[in-house]
Design a protein around this nucleic acid. Structure first.
Lengths: 115, 115
DNA sequence: TAGACATATTCCAATATCTAGATATATAAC
DNA sequence: GTTATATATCTAGATATTGGAATATGTCTA
């Protein structure tokens, strides 16, 4: 209990969460859920400029979230570690519990009014 | 496979990760690991201005990560849902796997050089 | 070899957001 | 009135996001 957490661990958490705190990058991750895709597919799917998409891919790559493979003139990105999806699921379940408690509150209010 | 993720889910993930993408806020979360603390304890522990700390507490509260309870003239904050620590663990294990692969690489290089 | 293509990278500009501190005010409890 | 806290305003600096344009690299192809 109460163990001091290392600065380094905090900093790497921050880096990870920062990489994930952008909608465009979250969409890229979702798009790669089913397997690797070449940049030429990712760009039109995301619908942003080439430089923008390339920069975001670089951010995810440097954060250790994506991996890449070059084949001829194409580059394919993929999820480096599927554990990232557990992170997503955990985030979702946190958010869903929030929604659930809101809906419980709404239900309670409804009962109070109608009942 | 390939199910379209809802915009709403993406947006709430983004909100969650954004709230977690700041070192000060990560420290607050760590500080609350062992139970609730009043703002009067959190401020000196974090070592930032009162307004700054209060703002960060508000961000975590509005993101659904912290809960609060008022007692007299004091306010106590606590972790709303301990699942948040699973998120932290997941982030750590992603990062540690990265470190592991770096250290494997270093080891391989060392073997190659030293024979 | 010349040229087309895929991608990364860099530079630039515009805009937006974040972070923090300082200060002041509002509220409620003591 | 003092204390604890939240909130708002203002400032200032830092960082992020995007697009555009240009450039560099490397690969494939005619």
């Amino acid at each position: 209990m109460g163990d001091k957490i290392s600065r380094g661990l905090l900093r790497s958490r921050e880096r990870t969460f920062k990489a994930l705190s952008d909608g465009t990058r979250l969409e890229i991750i979702e798009y790669l859920k089913d397997g690797e895709r070449c940049v030429c597919e990712i760009i039109p799917h995301i619908g942003k400029a080439q430089s923008t998409t390339s920069k975001n891919l670089g951010i995810l790559f440097r954060a250790g979230i994506l991996d890449k493979r070059e084949d001829g003139k194409k580059t394919f990105y993929r999820i480096k570690n599927p554990e990232i999806f557990r992170l997503m699921k955990d985030a979702d379940s946190l958010n869903l519990k929030d929604l659930a408690s809101v809906s419980e509150t709404v239900d309670a209010l409804r009962r109070a009014i109608e009942g």
